[in-house]
């Protein structure tokens, strides 16, 4: 295994120089033990082509920076061992997101927009009293919130989603999961109707075609299918005029 020669075919394009059309560039590299696509790309940059653009920060599947299309599938490059791939490895940037250059895309701007659109912060009328003891919360609830909050905004679910690839304004599984995170949080005082405004449309829960590519692609193994169903169920109820008591949480 450690003696394989790997052939990388990498998408190259600099949007600032549109006169040079996108092309695939080939690099050859000797595989080393424990090599990940992170290690390989850095070797290529240092030893063969210092102009090659890609993004890594944590290199530990924590920060969500390094998603790309690896042999046809959206994955985190830092969490992909070359030994799990054939000797020929094709790398493309994620679709949907704006291309910065080569393998680097602007997921940050996209996700900030998502946070704004879903108003991803605790809506509360309470102010902080530095002298008071904290409000109590059931540990089970805390873990439930955490489960949905584990999303690292990598964009894999968006890149692989048929709807997101055709509807620019679609929130995608990450967006719907985000809404679910606040729905289960008792500190957030939004009413069911307010959530309906956020996700009760084609941009939100109803744009989804339910093919579940997102669920397969999420490197954090978030239960996206379950979250989609949960949000859709709650939202449908409101759409149908089923009244839940005001101020009572959906969850």
């Amino acid at each position: 295994m450690a003696d394989r020669e790997l052939t990388f075919e990498i998408f190259r394009y600099n949007p600032q120089k549109p006169e040079t059309k996108p092309y695939l560039q080939t690099y050859k590299l000797k595989e080393t033990t424990g090599m990940t696509v992170f290690v390989a790309l850095n070797m290529i940059r240092e030893e063969q082509d210092p102009s090659l653009m890609f993004d890594f920060v944590c290199r530990a599947a924590i920060c969500g920076s390094c998603a790309m299309i690896i042999n046809g599938r959206p994955r985190l490059a830092c969490k992909t061992l070359t030994k799990t791939l054939p000797a020929k490895i094709k790398l493309f940037p994620l679709p949907v997101f704006k291309l910065i250059g080569d393998l680097s895309v602007d997921t940050g701007t996209w996700f900030r927009h998502l946070s704004l659109k879903t108003e991803s912060w605790i809506h509360t009328s309470k102010t902080f009293d530095p002298k008071a003891q904290e409000e109590r919360m059931d540990n089970k609830t805390a873990l439930e919130i955490y489960e949905a909050e584990r999303c690292i905004e990598c964009g894999c679910c968006i890149a692989g989603c048929a709807t997101a690839n055709i509807r620019e304004d679609f929130l995608g599984a990450a967006g719907i999961n985000r809404v679910a995170r606040f729905m289960v949080d008792p500190r957030d005082e939004r009413t069911p109707e307010q959530y309906f405004e956020v996700v009760g449309s084609e941009e939100g829960a109803f744009g989804c075609m339910g093919l579940m590519a997102c669920d397969d692609n999420c490197p954090m193994e978030l239960p996206l299918q379950m979250q989609l169903a949960f949000v859709r169920r709650k939202i449908a109820k409101i759409g149908l005029g089923v009244k839940e008591k005001k101020g009572v949480k959906l969850a």
Partner: peptide, 18 residues
């Protein structure tokens, strides 16, 4: 301690005593 509690009000789902 104040800083931790403030983060709780802002949304951190701190693990709780069981």
């Amino acid at each position: 301690p104040v800083a931790v509690r403030e983060m709780a009000v802002w949304g951190v789902p701190w693990s709780r005593v069981v």
